[in-house]
């Protein structure tokens, strides 16, 4: 159970500023939603925390210490595209085993893979399948199991349901809520969908043009938005006919 905190984090590519002094805290055992439009820097913030994007200013700390960006990270990430996040030539079991922190004998490894698959509500028999045999929702659950295999302190979920069909999205969102309840994981849940964020997150932060314009408890931010941009986002999420 750990606290992931971003202090004045900036990310620049040449003259192009993606993130500008972003401060955000993911408290222990809590889910923080990060919303914003495409290109606002949501994914970059998550990628910076695991060393996939260069931090040009500020610090990202895990329990007060810098997040290591070599070796197995205590912060794990789940990606948006279920069709690109699993190696098509490795079985589900192999993909998960790769993220395990220690080399286990075969029996123990299989038991651990079965345990992780059970956590994401998948049958242990799936371990022998190649990703090609799985649906998008099942792949996303395997990706979650792989992230859990590394025994993370914090999980970063980057638009993990936006590429899924609605009937599958529900199952993944339920799983995220179950995992927070049962495992007490801290999570940064990135999404452009306010209704989805409202369903899973305790806190929500609104990112606009690389800066956080508003953050607070989900019910407060969505119920009584204080920044114009948050109101703008909320208005867009409401049905068209109810507005007019």
């Amino acid at each position: 159970m750990s606290v992931l905190s971003f202090h004045e984090v900036s990310v620049r590519y040449g003259a192009h500023t993606v993130l500008n002094g972003v401060s955000l805290e993911v408290p222990a055992g809590r889910t923080v939603g990060l919303v914003g439009e495409s290109g606002c820097g949501k994914s970059t913030l998550a990628r910076a925390a695991v060393g996939l994007a260069p931090v040009t200013g500020g610090h990202i700390l895990l329990d007060g210490r810098p997040v290591p960006n070599r070796g197995r990270r205590p912060v794990q990430m789940v990606f948006q595209d279920p069709y690109s996040s699993l190696d098509p030539r490795m079985t589900v079991g192999e993909s998960i085993a790769e993220a395990l922190p220690e080399r286990l004998p075969k029996k123990a490894r299989q038991a651990e893979i079965a345990r992780l698959l059970a956590l994401v509500h998948l049958d242990a028999a799936r371990a022998g399948d190649l990703p090609g045999r799985l649906s998008g929702g099942q792949r996303q659950r395997v990706a979650l199991a792989r992230a859990l295999a590394a025994r993370p302190e914090v999980i970063l979920a980057d638009e993990i349901t936006s590429a899924l069909d609605v009937s599958v999205q529900g199952a993944v969102l339920n799983l995220i809520r179950d995992m927070r309840r049962d495992l007490g994981l801290s999570m940064l849940f990135i999404s452009h969908d306010l209704a989805v964020v409202r369903y899973v997150a305790d806190h929500v932060a609104v990112l606009h043009d690389g800066e956080i314009v508003e953050q607070g408890p989900t019910a407060r931010v969505l119920g009584d938005p204080r920044h114009d941009y948050t109101r703008h986002l909320l208005a867009a999420a409401l049905p068209l006919k109810e507005q007019t």
């Binding site: 070796g71 197995r72 912060v75 794990q76 990430m77 990606f79 993220a99 590394a150």
Partner: peptide, 10 residues
């Protein structure tokens, strides 16, 4: 992304 995931997994 699976390459990124492998890097993050160490």
């Amino acid at each position: 992304d699976y390459i990124a995931a492998a890097r993050i997994a160490g």
